[in-house]
C-alpha cells in the first residue's frame, strides 16, 4: 500500500489546531495545512490533495450536517476524521470514518487513523470477494456475534460506528451472509466464538 499520511486540519480554534499539529509531529502523519473553515478547505482540496481531513464537525453548515458524504463525494478515497471538541450528535459523527477526542494521545490518534484507513481501502477497492476475512474483520465479527451492537463494538475496538458498519458490509460481501444470526452461525462454524459466548 502506498503511504497515506498527508493530513489537512480544518479547525477554527487556533488552540486546537496548533495542539493537533504538534501531536501529529509524534506520529507517522504529516500535517500539510491548517484551514479555519470548511469552505476554504473544499476550495483548496484539489490542490492540497490530502489523504486525511481532520474536521471539526461544528464547521459544517447546519443544513449540511447530515450530508457529509455528499459534500466529499468527489473524494471517495479521502479519510474523514472528526475532531470532537464539543458535544456532537451521534448521527453526525457516524458519517466520519473515525472520531478523535481531546483526550487522545499521539499513539491513540495514530491507531485510530490506521484502522480507519484499512477499512476505507477495502470499501473503495471493494473487498475482493472470496478473500479471507482480515484480522480486524474477524474481531468485528466476533463482537457482533456475541450480541454487541454496532455502537458497543465501535467503543470496544476504538472505531467509529461508520467504520464498524463498513467492516460489516465487507464481511457480508466476502461471506455472502447478511443477517446477524447467519453471521453468528458462521463465526461458530469457523471457531471464532464459542457457543456459550453467544448472548
Amino acid at each position: 500500500m502506498t503511504r497515506q499520511n498527508k493530513v489537512l486540519i480544518v479547525e477554527h480554534s487556533p488552540v486546537v489546531a496548533e495542539g493537533l499539529k504538534s501531536l501529529f509531529e509524534e506520529t507517522e502523519y504529516r500535517v500539510i495545512a491548517t484551514l479555519p473553515t470548511l469552505e476554504s478547505a473544499l476550495e483548496r482540496l484539489p490542490a492540497l490533495n490530502p489523504d486525511i481531513v481532520v474536521l471539526n464537525p461544528m464547521l459544517i453548515d447546519f443544513s449540511q450536517r447530515l450530508k457529509l458524504r455528499h459534500i466529499f463525494q468527489e473524494y471517495p478515497n479521502l479519510l474523514l476524521a472528526a475532531m470532537q471538541t464539543f458535544y456532537c450528535e451521534q448521527s453526525v459523527l457516524a458519517q466520519f470514518h473515525t472520531v478523535l477526542d481531546l483526550e487522545d494521545n499521539p499513539a491513540r490518534i495514530s491507531t485510530k487513523l490506521k484502522n480507519a484507513l484499512e477499512a476505507i481501502s477495502h470499501e473503495t477497492e471493494g473487498a475482493p470477494a472470496g478473500s479471507e476475512l482480515s484480522m480486524r474483520e474477524k474481531e468485528v465479527l466476533k463482537a457482533i456475534s456475541k450480541g454487541y451492537t454496532n455502537k458497543q463494538v465501535a467503543d470496544m475496538l476504538h472505531l467509529s460506528v461508520h467504520t464498524v458498519i463498513t467492516h460489516r458490509k465487507n464481511i457480508s460481501h466476502k461471506t455472502g451472509i447478511k443477517t446477524l444470526s447467519g453471521l453468528t452461525l458462521y463465526a461458530l462454524i469457523n471457531h471464532l466464538i464459542d457457543e456459550n459466548e453467544i448472548q
Binding site: 461471506t175 455472502g176 451472509i177 447478511k178 443477517t179 444470526s181 447467519g182 453471521l183 452461525l185 458462521y186 462454524i189 469457523n190
Partner: peptide, 15 residues
C-alpha cells in the same frame, strides 16, 4: 428472503 440466502452460503461454503 435474506436469511434463506445466508443459509445457502452456510450450507455451500462453510459447513
Amino acid at each position: 428472503e435474506e436469511k434463506l440466502q445466508d443459509l445457502v452460503s452456510i450450507l455451500l461454503k462453510y459447513l
